Simulated assay, not measured.
Amino acid sequence: MAATTEGAVKAFCEGLGFGVPFFREGPREGQAPPFGVVQQENLAVSPSGNGDYGDPDAEIQVVETITVDLIQPAREKTTVRVAKNAERYGLAEVYAAALNGCTLPASPSPVTAVRVQDIDRFPVEKNRIRESITVLVHRTLRRSEVVPQ
């Protein structure tokens, strides 16, 4: 079991077996592409399904926004004057399709829905392509996240 929802997304993506390593918050020094980075962006209370706010034992449903960035090489040199495309076309779409509707079995709290919101593609920079998948995870807020130990 993962300690966080981002960890569960990381474990899920790595478990797909596409040979892409994933990291939380950033890659290790000198990591060669392709690789993925999983980060939490936002945690918001869901507007529905939260019961009576006066009940201290009511389950609170939240929507956690997580980004999954895929970094790939754009081109690789074949000869002194020629370079070929090194990008694995459709890689972001494959991950997005797998994430959309999954259950995140390694999640530390019950997940009710996982929805992919969009995929953004950024311009090539330093011979790297970055595609960012925005994932909305609907889940129960754990008491340990808000109550000090």
Rank of each mutant, 00 (worst) to 15 (best):
S109D: 12
R24D: 01
A86T: 09
D57H: 12
V135K: 02
R139P: 06
P27A: 14
L104S: 03
V9A: 02
Q117M: 10
T79I: 07
M1W: 03
A97L: 06
T65W: 03
P56C: 01
A44W: 06
V9F: 00
T140C: 00
V82K: 08
E145K: 11
A83S: 14
N127D: 15
K10G: 02
Q61V: 12
V37I: 10
F23H: 15
R88A: 08
R142A: 14
V63K: 05
L136N: 14
Y53I: 04
T112N: 07
E87V: 05
P34L: 10
Q149T: 15
A106G: 02
I66K: 01
G7D: 11
L136V: 07
Q31C: 04
F18T: 07
P21R: 06
N127S: 12
V45D: 10
T103V: 12
K84C: 05
G49F: 00
C102S: 14
F22C: 07
A74T: 12
Y89V: 12
E125A: 12
E76P: 04
V80G: 01
P123S: 08
F22Y: 14
E6T: 14
G15I: 11
E145Y: 09
V114T: 11
D118M: 07
F18H: 07
F22D: 05
E93M: 02
G101N: 09
T67S: 07
S132I: 05
G19Y: 02
G49P: 06
T140G: 00
P108N: 04
A97R: 15
V62I: 15
N127Q: 14
A96H: 04
R115F: 04
N100C: 07
A106S: 07
S109T: 15
T112R: 09
P56I: 08
T67H: 02
V94L: 01
I71F: 10
N127G: 12
D57T: 15
P33E: 05
D118W: 02
V116P: 12
E64F: 02
R75F: 14
P27D: 09
R24E: 08
T140P: 01
L104T: 03
R81T: 15
F12R: 03
L16I: 11
T78H: 07
E14Q: 15
N100L: 02
V68P: 06
G17F: 05
D118S: 15
A98N: 10
I66R: 00
V63M: 04
G36A: 09
T65M: 11
Q72C: 08
Y89E: 05
G30R: 02
V20H: 00
V80D: 11
A74S: 14
M1C: 10
F18D: 09
F23T: 13
Q39G: 04
A113V: 03
V45C: 06
D52Y: 08
L70Y: 07
E76W: 09
Q40M: 13
T4K: 01
T134M: 03
K126I: 08
G17N: 11
